[in-house]
């Protein structure tokens, strides 16, 4: 797996650029990752990102958008507003997690 430099530190990523070592992530890196894809993070973004991190830590897989809505309590509409076009992938990227595998 390649190593790239983000936020002045080396991080392990896959060929697309998603982090492969979730432990290398912290919130300052999250801010830097968001900037790479043109997002400036506010409180609403962080609520979703923190849910993703916690859910991944307990379940070992990135939650799907539906799970962020149902279990994380963040309406689907808001997720599309906060992370436009491809919310599930953008959210996973900023949270330093793999893309979700679920279909729904």
């Amino acid at each position: 797996m390649p190593v790239t430099t983000i936020d002045n530190r080396p991080v392990h990523v896959n060929e697309e650029g998603f982090l492969t070592e979730p432990a290398e992530w912290d919130e300052s890196l999250g801010t830097a990752l968001a900037a790479q894809i043109g997002l400036e993070l506010g409180d609403e973004h962080w609520k979703a990102i923190r849910f993703l991190r916690e859910d991944y830590a307990t379940r070992g897989e990135t939650p799907t958008l539906r799970r962020v809505t149902v279990a994380g309590g963040i309406p689907t509409k808001d997720l599309f507003r906060l992370f436009p076009s491809k919310p599930a992938k953008k959210l996973a990227y900023v949270a330093g997690l793999p893309k979700p595998h679920g279909c729904v």
Binding site: V3, T5, H12, G17, Q36, I37, K89, K90, Y93
Partner: peptide, 16 residues
């Protein structure tokens, strides 16, 4: 580590 880090950063292309 299987590769050395080089600029520019590897970033997914979400909005091609």
């Amino acid at each position: 580590m299987t590769a050395t880090d080089t600029a520019p950063a590897i970033v997914p292309s979400f909005d091609t």
